[in-house]
Design a protein around this nucleic acid. Sequence first.
DNA 1: ATCTGTGAACCGGTTCACAGCC
DNA 2: GGCTGTGAACCGGTTCACAGAT
Lengths: 214, 214
Amino acid sequence: MKKVKIPEATIARLSVYSRFLNRMEKNGVDTVSSGEIAKGTASNSAQVRKDFAYFGGFGKRGVGYDVIDLNRNIKEILGLNKEWRAIIVGMGNLGKALAYYHGFSTRGFKIMGLFDNDPQKIGEKIDTLTVQDDQVMEKFLDNNEIDIMILTLPAEYTQAVVDRVEGKGIKGILNFAPTVIHASEGTQIRNVDLAVHLEVMSYNLTHSINKEQE
Amino acid sequence: MKKVKIPEATIARLSVYSRFLNRMEKNGVDTVSSGEIAKGTASNSAQVRKDFAYFGGFGKRGVGYDVIDLNRNIKEILGLNKEWRAIIVGMGNLGKALAYYHGFSTRGFKIMGLFDNDPQKIGEKIDTLTVQDDQVMEKFLDNNEIDIMILTLPAEYTQAVVDRVEGKGIKGILNFAPTVIHASEGTQIRNVDLAVHLEVMSYNLTHSINKEQE
DNA sequence: ATCTGTGAACCGGTTCACAGCC
DNA sequence: GGCTGTGAACCGGTTCACAGAT
């Protein structure tokens, strides 16, 4: 194990491997090889081994990887052994969908609050939470340690919200609006643009590009 | 303009540039420089120019790019000058959110049908469409030319649905389930895993990695 | 015999730096 | 003078191929 820069692509793949390993765990499988992991995650075995090698290697030569042990290690690397507390701002359909989305809660991301400025939506119950007036957001952040803010509102409102939470302890922002936002140094910003996927697909279909996926 | 392999990353950025240009168009801006595009899309000017260069260059030296002209060119490259017809299978919260999502329709992706196997959901009206019994999906595909299938159902059901639409003219599949799916040669498959973004963020926060984003 | 771990080779995308044009 | 277009240099991630462990 050497101290080298780890590709972000490796981190993203670890996340995918981990979900595959969850399934293996549930199925009672206790050992997997890099080849099996590759097959289950659209990767390749050398890549899988290399990804693990950045962190020292978790396998046994000639045998493979212990599913539970490997999964625990990956989760720890990803920082999923703690609970991350998040809020969602913007209770349109996407915001609602994410509020219900179990793919977050099962991975240690706890949605603590939902906010909107639309009186129609304020007070609405979504899963176990009630949508709050976004005017009380700052106060909520003062009283609850929130790590992550998920933004699912129209592009024109995002920056204003980001400015309002400045200094309230938010460490990361997951932005679904197709616009660049600026936060203070040290705040992680990640942009997710759902249309991009369809448009890359459109390009590939238009130009008959057959991307291999396994 | 030379015939070289175009990075997929370039295609994804073109999609982002185009949405930025839409906004410029709406604001009545008629010329932009590569630097301005870069600033508005978290890229850098050399990258922007290089991306365009793959397709021959659309600008005027010393001046910049004509917003409308450039945007039209990008959309054509991306294959967005035609209408893509899609269905969504799985009317959970994410499926619903995507059914309502205007970010698709405004970019030329028309949702033609919604399907689910839950009697509770069948018949429900979502936007202008009614959720149909997924048993009639094959028939629907026979009667409507559908290009794209968006899968928003639990991982364990995805492959069965993919198998059922074999040979029905589906050219691309956008899969939101965290699992590998197999389709016939030539069918584009793109996987979107929403949890990955949060988990990469978790990793970065845990290891204090400050990714520059502009 | 099998499967991991890893340096080395390779490949492809990004950035640089400057020539070319307005 | 300003901004594009682009070969060249650079950088980083992926793949290869084999040594090492069980």
